[in-house]
C-alpha cells in the first residue's frame, strides 16, 4: 500500500503542491488528470523523492520517509520499491535494450548477469521487444523506446510504477502500442500511478481517478463517478474543454479525410 500524507512542495515561494493526501491500494491503478501546471509531475516526482517535498511524508509498505528528515538511505530504500516511466523515455543511450533492462537488476538488485539476462528477456517478451534486445535506443521508434522504459521499470518488480505522461511525446500512431502494453500490465495486478491526458484510456484502465488543479486534489473517485457525475465545477469545466478539443481534433481529421 502507498500512502501520501499532506505532501506540499514549493519552488522558491511559489507553492505547487498544497497538501496532497492519497492512498493507493496494492494492485490498484490510479490515474491523475488535471490541467497543465496543476502539479501532476511534481507530485509523481515527490513520491520517489526525485523532488524532495517541502512538507509531508510518503509511506510505502513498511517504510515511511518524511520530507525533512528523510535520509539518503531511506530515500534509496524508497526508490528501490518504486520505478518510474518518463515522458521522454530517458533510456540509457550507451546501453542496448536488454542492457537497459538489466542495469537495475544487476546494480541495484545484485542479480548475477545470467539471472538478469533471463529476467530481462522475460520482461522484453511482455512488451513485445525480444527481437530488439540488442538494438541501441537510437535505432528504435518512440513507441518502442517507451516500451523499453516500461520494461526497465517492470523488471524490478516494484511495489508501484509511476508513469508521467508515458505517451505524450509520441506520434499519434504510436500511442496505441504503448497504451496497450500499460493496459496489459495493469491487468497483471501491478500497482500503478499514471499521469495522463488520455481520458478514454484513463477511464478504461483505472480503478481510481484523481483530478488535480492548482496543486490540490479537487475531486477523486471511481472512473464512473468522476467521468459521469463530477461534482466540482472545475472538474466539469476540465472535461468539457477536453471533449471540445477532442471534438475539434476529430472534425479536423474528418475534414482532412
Amino acid at each position: 500500500m502507498i500512502q501520501l500524507r499532506n505532501i506540499q512542495k514549493s519552488f522558491g515561494n511559489q507553492p505547487v503542491l498544497k497538501g496532497i493526501d492519497l492512498t493507493v491500494k496494492k494492485g490498484e491503478v490510479v490515474s491523475i488528470l488535471g490541467p497543465s501546471g496543476s502539479g501532476k509531475t511534481t507530485l509523481l516526482r515527490c513520491i520517489n523523492f526525485l523532488e524532495r517535498p517541502t512538507e509531508g511524508e510518503v509511506m510505502i509498505d513498511d517504510i515511511t520517509v518524511s520530507s525533512q528528515k528523510g535520509s539518503k538511505k531511506e530515500i534509496l530504500t524508497l526508490r528501490k520499491k518504486t520505478a518510474m516511466v518518463f515522458q521522454q523515455y530517458n533510456l540509457f543511450r550507451h546501453k542496448t535494450v536488454i542492457e537497459n533492462v538489466m542495469e537495475g537488476l544487476i546494480v541495484v538488485q545484485k542479480n548475477s548477469k545470467e539471472t538478469a539476462r533471463k529476467l530481462a528477456m522475460e520482461v522484453l517478451e511482455k512488451v513485445g521487444l525480444t527481437e530488439k534486445a540488442n538494438a541501441y535506443p537510437v535505432q528504435l521508434s518512440g513507441g518502442q523506446q517507451q516500451r523499453v522504459g516500461i520494461a526497465r521499470a517492470l523488471a524490478l518488480n516494484p511495489e508501484v510504477i509511476l508513469l508521467d505522461e508515458p505517451t505524450s511525446a509520441l506520434d499519434p500512431e504510436l500511442v496505441g502500442e504503448v497504451l496497450e502494453v500499460i493496459k496489459r500490465i495493469a491487468e497483471e495486478g501491478i500497482t500503478m500511478i499514471i499521469v495522463t491526458h488520455e481520458v478514454s484510456f484513463a477511464k478504461d484502465v483505472s480503478d481510481y481517478i484523481v483530478f488535480m488543479d492548482q496543486g490540490e486534489i479537487v475531486e477523486e473517485g471511481t472512473p464512473t463517478v468522476i467521468f459521469n457525475n463530477p461534482k466540482e465545477e472545475r472538474t466539469k469545466r476540465f472535461f468539457k474543454r477536453i471533449n471540445r478539443e477532442a471534438g475539434i481534433l476529430e472534425s479536423n481529421l474528418s475534414s482532412v479525410i
Binding site: 526525485l50 526508490r79 518504486t82 520505478a83 518518463f86 543511450r93 546494480v107
Partner: peptide, 26 residues
C-alpha cells in the same frame, strides 16, 4: 541529459553509481 541520471536514480541507484555507470561513460 539530466533525465538519464534521474532514470538511474529512480530505480534505486546511488548518485555515485548513476554517475559512474550512466553519465560518465557518455
Amino acid at each position: 541529459d539530466q533525465g538519464q541520471l534521474e532514470a538511474a536514480e529512480s530505480i534505486g541507484m546511488t548518485n555515485f553509481q548513476a554517475m559512474r555507470r550512466i553519465v560518465f561513460p557518455q
